[in-house]
Design a protein around this nucleic acid. Structure first.
Lengths: 206, 206
DNA sequence: AGCGGGGGCAAACGTATGTTTCAAACGTTT
DNA sequence: AAACGTTTGAAACATACGTTTGCCCCCGCT
């Protein structure tokens, strides 16, 4: 076949390893070894490690953003939508827009966390350029949902929310470990994400 | 002198560079070059790069946690304190407990973000062991402030808040860049942190 | 004055990384 | 079946890193 599955195997392995250990700490050798392909395959198919990182994000983000954009357009047609509805849609889409389990989503949020707290300027620029439009559409809908919050403050609070979500889903397993130790309670990932919604809504309202 | 200032120069340089570029991406050569000391000085004074990372955190966190602990004890004596008071104290202390400008605090929050989203397990363990007590004291006071929120949910929401704060202060300058581009408005760091308080309080209340 | 040791210095060491090379294997087309 | 472009394979390459090594200087001591 002209488009072998080597590319997909590499992306799968890179996605998991990047999320587990970070970009810089994950070597191409670790990726290709896990993927069961030759070391040179990465540079052959992607050109460089940097391009591989972008490809990992693109594979996840493009279908998600397309789905979200469609949903948002639909909501725009229906008139006003409240906060719970908007964030509920985004959350459901983020956790389930890919056929597979929400594990994929957790992995991806870990990746996003790394992208933000690390100096991957090329990545930030890339993300802004390719997916900024959906974000602005979402923000516009939010504005009609809470007209009492000034646009600037709303903008900031959305970023705060993004931080809460990414940070939480990034450190999910440490959170589970701590809660088990301090509360003798096992807590599911679903429970945590479900708790995020009222927090975000409350925070946006201020 | 027996305790030269080389140690402090290294810590200063490492603090800034770690925050700017991350732990793995910052080489000892970059640190010692910025500090104006010899490359071998790091391994001589600290033993290893890993130990240097811990030392950077310790130098910042120890005075902060001591100050916070004292304040919290004081508040415990005075009976009930509300959410705004508690987070206000923590925020003021975090931003100003070191004589220097809040720039230090921003740097440090960037560091914390990296510590959480990267695989520095040794660091996470170290932080939990040394500063976990203050965190639990804070949580206990919060519980009396919002008794209507179940302990488990409160615990989660505090972590959500931590995420919002760290994420925000980590990406402060990108936030400023975006806001300038999208709103034609210059926004100060002080303004952003000040906006964080109502968001967190609103989120905790749910 | 002589000595001893803590600290600084340049240089080197071993290793791991991203990338490149080039030949072999493969699949498709003629 | 032969020829071609595409993909894989093992090996090498150059480089950057953390760490270690000796040697030097300089200060406080007897």
């Amino acid at each position: 076949m002209s488009q072998s599955d080597t590319v997909q195997r590499i992306l799968d392995a890179a996605e998991v390893l990047f999320a587990q250990k970070g970009f810089a700490e994950t070597s191409l050798r670790a990726i290709t070894s896990r993927a069961g392909v030759n070391l040179a395959a990465v540079n052959y198919h992607f050109g460089s490690k940097e391009a591989l990182i972008q490809a990992v994000f693109e594979r996840y983000l493009t279908p998600f953003c397309q789905a979200l954009d469609a949903k948002l357009q639909e909501l725009e047609g229906q008139g006003a939508a409240d906060l719970e509805k908007l964030f509920g849609v985004a959350s459901r889409l983020a956790l389930g827009s890919h056929g597979d389990e929400p594990r994929r989503a957790m992995i991806f949020f870990r990746l996003s966390g790394q992208a933000y707290s690390q100096p991957q300027d090329h990545l930030r620029a890339y993300l802004r350029e390719h997916y900024g439009a959906v974000f602005r559409r979402f923000l516009a809908l939010l504005r009609t949902a809470v007209p009492e919050v000034p646009p600037m403050e709303l903008f900031l609070r959305v970023h705060f929310s993004l931080g809460a979500v990414i940070f939480t889903l990034s450190g999910m397993e440490s959170l589970q470990t701590i809660s088990k130790k301090d509360f003798n309670t096992d807590i599911t990932a679903a429970r945590i994400t479900q708790q995020l919604l009222p927090f975000v809504v409350g925070g946006i309202r201020g």
